[in-house]
Simulated scan of single mutants.
Amino acid sequence: MDNSFWAFIALVLFFVIVWYAKAFPKMGKALDDHGNRVRRELDEARALKEEAKTQLAEYQRRSHEAEREAQAIVAAATREAEAILTDARRRNEEYVTRRTQMAEAKIAQAEAEAIAEVKATAVDLAIAAAGRVIAEKSAHGESGRFIDQSLGEIRQRLN
């Protein structure tokens, strides 16, 4: 009877005690419960994975939609800015044209006024000179009245 015999007896005695205490069904039940729990957790993990995939697909779809929408907004803003710029250029050109026309009209008016003033001054000088020449050549009397009347008619016609 050596040590291996006593080890064998101890092993048999251990199995008898385990069988008597009904540990095998309890261990089987515990292993089955553990297996079921692992199976449920795997099922939950698969469901969560599928949900994550759907959420990812939804996120990507929304991201693409947002990107297209942003591009549309940028394109609309660009078109609007170009329209505003074109309108501003057109208005600026119209403003410059109006101001140029107004300046040209003022210049023409000033030129006409200057010419009229020069003509009036020339007429006055010519009348005064003619009056002096005629007055010097003619006698003071009846002819002076005709001269004044003639000078008045000349002023009316030249002005």
Results as ranks from 00 to 15, higher is better:
residue 118 V to G: 09
residue 109 Q to R: 14
residue 126 A to I: 06
residue 114 A to Y: 01
residue 106 K to M: 10
residue 104 E to C: 00
residue 111 E to Y: 04
residue 94 E to K: 13
residue 112 A to F: 02
residue 108 A to V: 03
residue 105 A to H: 11
residue 101 Q to C: 01
residue 104 E to Y: 00
residue 95 Y to I: 10
residue 105 A to N: 12
residue 98 R to K: 15
residue 122 A to K: 13
residue 114 A to T: 06
residue 125 L to P: 01
residue 111 E to D: 13
residue 109 Q to S: 09
residue 115 I to H: 04
residue 111 E to S: 11
residue 108 A to Y: 01
residue 119 K to F: 02
residue 127 I to W: 04
residue 106 K to R: 15
residue 121 T to H: 11
residue 102 M to T: 10
residue 94 E to P: 04
residue 102 M to H: 10
residue 97 T to F: 09
residue 111 E to I: 08
residue 121 T to F: 05
residue 97 T to A: 15
residue 121 T to W: 03
residue 111 E to A: 14
residue 119 K to D: 07
residue 96 V to M: 09
residue 124 D to V: 05
residue 107 I to G: 00
residue 119 K to W: 06
residue 124 D to M: 10
residue 108 A to W: 00
residue 97 T to E: 12
residue 107 I to F: 07
residue 121 T to L: 11
residue 113 E to P: 02
residue 107 I to W: 01
residue 118 V to K: 15
residue 117 E to Q: 12
residue 101 Q to D: 07
residue 102 M to R: 13
residue 102 M to S: 10
residue 118 V to D: 15
residue 105 A to I: 06
residue 113 E to L: 15
residue 103 A to I: 04
residue 117 E to N: 10
residue 125 L to D: 14
residue 120 A to V: 13
residue 108 A to G: 00
residue 126 A to H: 08
residue 102 M to L: 14
residue 99 R to T: 08
residue 122 A to G: 14
residue 97 T to Q: 12
residue 119 K to I: 07
residue 120 A to W: 09
residue 116 A to T: 05
residue 126 A to M: 12
residue 117 E to D: 12
residue 114 A to G: 02
residue 118 V to S: 15
residue 110 A to K: 04
residue 124 D to S: 11
residue 95 Y to M: 14
residue 126 A to R: 09
residue 101 Q to M: 09
residue 123 V to P: 01
residue 107 I to R: 04
residue 105 A to L: 14
residue 96 V to F: 09
residue 127 I to M: 12
residue 127 I to E: 04
residue 105 A to S: 13
residue 121 T to G: 14
residue 107 I to D: 03
residue 122 A to F: 09
residue 96 V to L: 13
residue 113 E to R: 07
residue 102 M to Q: 13
residue 98 R to W: 08
residue 113 E to D: 15
residue 94 E to H: 11
residue 96 V to I: 12
residue 97 T to C: 08
residue 117 E to I: 03
residue 107 I to P: 00
residue 100 T to K: 09
residue 124 D to I: 03
residue 122 A to Q: 15
residue 126 A to L: 07
residue 96 V to P: 06
residue 107 I to V: 14
residue 127 I to P: 02
residue 94 E to F: 11
residue 100 T to Y: 02
residue 103 A to V: 03
residue 109 Q to T: 08
residue 110 A to E: 05
residue 116 A to V: 06
residue 125 L to N: 15
residue 124 D to C: 01
residue 123 V to R: 03
residue 96 V to W: 07
residue 99 R to L: 10
residue 112 A to I: 03
residue 104 E to M: 04
residue 123 V to G: 02
residue 101 Q to N: 08
residue 110 A to V: 00
residue 97 T to I: 13
residue 114 A to K: 02
residue 127 I to A: 11
residue 94 E to Q: 14
residue 105 A to P: 00
residue 100 T to L: 07
residue 112 A to H: 01
residue 104 E to S: 02
residue 96 V to T: 09
residue 111 E to G: 01
residue 102 M to K: 11
residue 127 I to G: 05
residue 116 A to P: 01
residue 119 K to M: 10
residue 115 I to E: 04
